[in-house]
């Protein structure tokens, strides 16, 4: 479903702020793979996700989503294949527009936007149904501005918007990191539920090792711009945190500072 072939990315090449974020990333995801991504600060997790989303062009390599080479497509064109939830709850929604308008925008991802009215009554009912499933009471606040919602509510809404039109690939970029632990757990549960129900292919960055182990059917660990650990299936089910650290040390050839990993 996703084929990342040897991509590399250096920011600000030739300047004092030059930073090589991705050295050589190789990753193939099968349809239905729910892959968690961990790694320390500056390992290249977010850069990889943003490269897939097309936030910037890559220096080398190709990216295919669902068999389509998207390497040269701009961000807004890749959006038709992708659902995205960001770390910052502010990023995923338009604060000055109301809930139903935000959902209507998401419903038209990848569609032509013409001079038809921006939201129909039929859609409204559908959105109400979808919001009810979140169990946050948002179905009664559809005309409220999204800026009035809490961070957790906004992330839940963003998640719903990302999957309203079934994406070929769902990208979750530490989408629970900015939330309090209780809300984070709830949003994570919700993500898992949606991914299972819609049988989505998903890539989820997390700073929490236990979450990375508990969720998904596959786990990758990144280090210095490469994928250094990749476990799936039965092996992943049996994985413990100690195993994970051992795997990392073997791959990276150095002691793992787990604090660093957790805090990133």
């Amino acid at each position: 479903m996703l084929k990342i072939n040897h991509i590399a990315k250096t920011f600000n090449p030739g300047t004092i702020t030059e930073k090589t974020a991705l050295v050589d990333v190789q990753l193939h995801l099968l349809p239905g793979d729910f892959t968690t991504v961990i790694g320390g600060n500056g390992a290249g997790k977010s850069t990889m996700l943003n490269a897939v989303a097309g936030v910037f062009p890559v220096d080398k390599g190709t990216i295919e989503i669902g068999g389509v080479d998207v390497t040269n497509l701009p961000e807004f064109k890749r959006a038709q294949y992708l659902g995205r939830v960001f770390q910052d709850p502010m990023t995923g929604t338009a604060a000055t527009m109301n809930i139903e308008e935000n959902m209507a925008l998401a419903m038209r991802r990848g569609q032509h936007r013409g001079l038809k009215w921006g939201i129909s009554n039929m859609e409204r009912e559908m959105y109400r149904e979808q919001l009810r499933k979140l169990d946050l009471g948002l179905e009664d606040r559809m005309a409220s501005k999204v800026g009035l919602l809490s961070g957790g509510q906004r992330q839940a809404l963003t998640l719903l918007m990302a999957t309203l039109r079934t994406p070929k690939l769902l990208l979750l970029d530490e989408h629970t990191a900015a939330l309090d632990p209780k809300t984070a757990a709830k949003v994570l549960e919700l993500s898992d539920k949606i991914i299972r129900e819609q049988k989505l292919t998903a890539l989820m960055i997390t700073h929490n090792m236990q979450d990375a182990i508990d969720y998904g059917n596959r786990l990758i660990m990144m280090h210095e711009g490469r994928v250094v650990v990749d476990v799936a299936g039965e092996e992943k089910k049996k994985l413990t945190r100690a195993d994970l650290m051992g795997l990392f040390e073997k791959a990276a050839g150095q002691q793992l500072n787990s604090d660093k990993l957790l805090l990133s």
């Binding site: 995205r84 929604t93 000055t96 925008l105």
Partner: peptide
């Protein structure tokens, strides 16, 4: 609506195509 979204949040607008 897409114009309003562009003004409100460009990152979000691009993510919505």
């Amino acid at each position: 609506c897409s114009l309003r979204a562009t003004g409100a949040n460009r990152a979000m607008a691009r993510a919505q195509g």
